[in-house]
Design a protein around this nucleic acid. Structure first.
Lengths: 156, 156
DNA sequence: ATAAAATAAATTGCGCACAATCTAATTGGC
DNA sequence: GCCAATTAGATTGTGCGCAATTTATTTTAT
């Protein structure tokens, strides 16, 4: 029991093993992503949106009429995530889901007037988030670049 | 309809608005975190662990006997996430959950022999992940630092 | 000694993320 | 023209992540 306590308290593993939580880059990224979604919550509650719903709305505000496949490509999400999410946004009257005219398999997503209007309320969100992060813009840009590279490199 | 098509195709908004998906640092971080968990999956399937379960095991491998509160502080997760996760790991015989002797409210988590043994199989995982990321170590370290800062700054 | 406040964990409920599977429509080859 | 292969999306089931609430225990103040 004494040796066990010693090993824990002095944390011998941290010098020799890579299997320590404090060394894990991926854990830092995972925790930061969770923290970001948590930080967005109060702002997005005011818009009655979750963070993934907010992302979908952002895409729609510049690509009204996009289909589920293209939306999924842009957001790196599949239909298993998007279909129920889009149904919830449809229930909130922010969009409508229409079948494609020339291809019946395709679902095209169109903003309602209400959904389009929500954009003006959302305009303030990105800047408020940048303030909360308290990081200089150059650091945020290099962080973004590394994340984008990571994402690309882990593709299949 | 012609003007609508023009607006979409030339993406006018991208120059004037911050509300474009390609500009969102947070979206990059969110996508990278999802991509990481996806990339870990095949490796961790071999250990019959999910990524959050793997994180818990990493902490236990250097802090056997830790309680739920301390575990939550380390992983930035609460009992609503940890309690059912720990029960699943207990069902897999990787750990046991005991009540604290001096304080009955506390749950202390102890590795089983099987749980302790799993560490040797997990030793190869971090390096394999670094390879998959294809990023130079310096970039990974600066990425980790920025994520840790982001996480700290968004605290409460 | 006891009631109030604080603390640790568990529970409930919702919304992702994603693997796996299924359905329906379209395309390509012959 | 017809059938196999492909494609788009929907469905099902599991495991988080977390807000909100609840239960049980401990601490504090009186």
């Amino acid at each position: 029991m004494a040796s066990n306590t010693l090993k824990q308290d002095t944390n011998m593993a941290s010098d020799t093993s890579d299997l320590v939580i404090e060394k894990q880059v991926c854990f830092s990224l995972y925790s930061a992503a969770n923290a970001i979604i948590r930080a967005y919550r109060p702002m997005l509650n005011a818009l009655d949106l979750t963070y993934p719903q907010y992302l979908v709305m952002i895409v729609l505000w510049s690509h009204d009429g996009i289909n589920v496949k293209s939306l999924g490509t842009k957001l790196h999400l599949d239909s298993g995530t998007l279909t129920p999410l889009l149904k919830r946004l449809e229930n909130k009257q922010l969009l409508v889901r229409r079948r494609g005219l020339e291809d019946e398999r395709v679902r095209e997503i169109f903003l309602t007037a209400q959904g389009a209007q929500l954009k003006s309320l959302a305009e303030a969100v990105p800047n408020e988030m940048l303030c909360k992060s308290k990081l200089p813009i150059e650091e945020l840009l290099s962080l973004k670049e590394s994340c984008d590279k990571m994402c690309d490199n882990l593709q299949e």
